[in-house]
């Protein structure tokens, strides 16, 4: 019961966060230099033309009125129209890209989560031994390697030398992502390289801590085989901090892959945001950033919930008897 109530409270605070964030985003984009009407009409516009466009777009209204117009549109599911691509509804651009980003994020997640948890556990259990030293060194090295460097290395190796994967992750016109799944591999690998260090090191240190705990000692002295002690007694508890780290990075993974998507030309949310910023497409920037915020908030909620499921001390209220 307590657990459900906690979930509802979290849900409420999530909605509140989003409302506050929408205001902040609108306000910050407002501060950006440049005149929207000028941007739309270009260099050759007349002052009269600009004035009438400002009037028709409602740009002369007070800030709060404009915010409310935008926000009430949001509540009805209307994200507005793109400025750069005149008259195209943002809804028709954004969701397709979000779908692509989602597929990429899930692919990357499937790559790096099992890999880094496995090696983190191995390193933690064998702390101080050679295998731990190799894994830890590799983790540190990849952490220091920016994704555009590892991305270029991968392109050189797999696309230029071996010619087994496409150089860019562009979907040919008229085709969908599903027919071109091989374009996911290189970006996902680059993300894996970035995340591996963080996640495996977190897993390693929490594993060391748990292996040193009283209950793992007790399990060993109950005469349980070591493998069983590691996987049944230690791992479930040692996963908790790692899940927090993975959850915290989920927002970045879904919406913040600007560098990786730009490098590979992948048609996702990151490259959409990038081009929106480049073209000063204000409504599109607002929509993208708000969606990224949404992803961050939702992933935090999922992390918290998952944490509760794995940890009975959170799930079950204390002092039942």
């Amino acid at each position: 019961m307590f657990f459900i109530r906690r979930f509802i409270v979290r849900l409420g605070s999530m909605v509140a966060t989003l409302a506050v964030m929408s205001f902040l985003i609108f306000f910050l984009v407002e501060l950006m230099p440049g005149d929207v009407a000028q941007m739309v009409l270009g260099q050759n516009s007349t002052p009269e033309g600009l004035a009438s466009l400002r009037e028709s777009m409602g740009l002369n209204d007070p800030f709060l009125v404009r915010y409310w117009r935008w926000f009430s549109g949001l509540l009805q599911g209307d994200l507005g129209e793109s400025l750069y691509m005149r008259g195209v509804a943002i809804n028709s651009i954004l969701w397709r890209k979000v779908g692509h980003s989602l597929v990429l994020a899930i692919t990357a997640l499937l790559f790096y989560v099992p890999l880094s948890i496995f090696f983190g556990v191995v390193a933690g259990v064998r702390a101080g031994k050679l295998s731990d030293q190799i894994i830890s060194f590799f983790g540190l090295a990849t952490m220091a390697l920016p994704e555009f460097v590892s991305g270029v290395l991968f392109i050189t190796l797999f696309s230029v030398k071996l010619k087994i994967l496409p150089i860019t992750s562009v979907i040919p016109i008229g085709e969908s992502l599903w027919g071109n799944l091989n374009i996911l591999i290189l970006p996902a690998l680059s993300i894996t390289i970035v995340m591996f260090g963080y996640v495996s090191r977190m897993q390693r240190s929490s594993m060391i801590q748990v292996m040193d705990s009283d209950y793992v000692r007790a399990a060993t002295l109950k005469g349980l085989p070591r493998r069983y002690v590691i996987f049944r007694h230690a791992l479930k508890n040692a996963l908790l901090p790692t899940i927090t780290i993975i959850g915290m990075n989920m927002g970045w993974l879904f919406g913040g892959l600007i560098v990786v998507e730009t490098l590979f030309g992948f048609p996702g949310l990151g490259s959409l945001t990038m081009s929106a910023i480049k073209t000063r497409d204000v409504p599109l920037i607002e929509a993208c950033v708000l969606f990224i915020t949404f992803i961050f908030v939702v992933s935090t909620l999922i992390t918290d919930t998952l944490y509760g499921v794995l940890n009975p001390r959170v799930r079950l209220a204390k002092g039942v008897d």
Binding site: D214, Y215, K236, N237, N311
Partner: peptide, 13 residues
């Protein structure tokens, strides 16, 4: 049997 029963039992099982 150990000194601290709470920490000697696995909290998640």
């Amino acid at each position: 049997v150990y000194q601290n029963p709470y920490s000697s039992l696995n909290p998640s099982l």
